[in-house]
Design a protein around this nucleic acid. Structure first.
Lengths: 143, 143
DNA sequence: ATTCTACTTTACGTTTACGTAAACTGGCCC
DNA sequence: GGGCCAGTTTACGTAAACGTAAAGTAGAAT
């Protein structure tokens, strides 16, 4: 079976990218397609690497981190060491993501507080003497 | 009681910022301290605005969004309308944060999968014929 | 032969929130 | 009158991930 090949536009369509993005990934060393004259010809290996690149992005890796990971496979070293290194990296990333989740939870809690304060002010507005904006500001900052 | 005043360094220390950051906020229209000659003199109003600015940042607002919100208070309009507008903005932000949280949850799920796959491969490694890196790559991309 | 489409390269632009350097000023201490 | 600290302005630099011209080429279709 002869290897499937793809043009840059094929991959762009398939993955919902612009060709510019794909060339950019090449500049960053993530892809290295063959050439037919001046034109890029992508094989299955390239497609897999692109797929993994996008997966890495979803996981919050930077392109340079993704490059490192991809390069780990090209350097034909001890496979076990590779997997262990890989697990390490994943763990670090997971920790970062968990931290981000906590940050967001905190922000959400704060925003809910804020919303509640605003609603309280809206409802109690007529009951109390009207406050000037600057005083509202102070209220909101008082926490 | 005469208003408390602060130097730029006072505020930098109090809020853990650099003076550069505080001047930058001024450039962006978030602060407008008085002057004593060339030097900036911050009053309580400035301090409150700075505090709100940092709070806004924690909530994920950009500086220009924060400026808009702060300016809402300066434009002495209908206070009720202001609060309602404010609630709107908060809701939008909350939606964004909830989306981000979901994205992160998704990434975490994916990463846990990934970790599991790697561990399976590590454990079953000796049991099966050794695979070449490129084949491992294919495995990982197969999802 | 001309037009069209897809592709190419080079290189500057964008966004956000500051960092950093340079060069200067003003006041206080001794 | 020298040093030092805190402050000032101007302005270029940084990071990430592309976007966006500009200008050209190869190959196919008409």
């Amino acid at each position: 079976m002869t290897e499937a090949t793809y043009t840059i536009s094929d991959l762009a369509r398939e993955f919902g990218l612009t060709t510019r993005a794909i060339r950019f990934y090449e500049d960053q060393g993530l892809l290295s397609p063959a050439r037919a004259g001046r034109n890029r010809v992508y094989g299955n290996r390239d497609r897999v690497r692109l797929k993994l690149t996008l997966r890495g992005k979803r996981l919050g890796f930077s392109l340079s981190e993704i490059k490192e990971l991809l390069d780990m496979y090209d350097a034909a070293g001890d496979e076990k060491a590779q997997l262990e290194r890989f697990l390490e990296v994943l763990k670090v990333r997971r920790t970062i993501l968990e931290q981000q989740r906590e940050d967001i939870e905190g922000a959400l809690a704060e925003i809910r507080d804020f919303e509640k304060q605003c609603q309280d002010m809206l409802e109690g507005r007529r009951a109390r003497a009207a406050k000037k904006p600057i005083e509202v500001l102070r209220d909101l900052a008082k926490n």
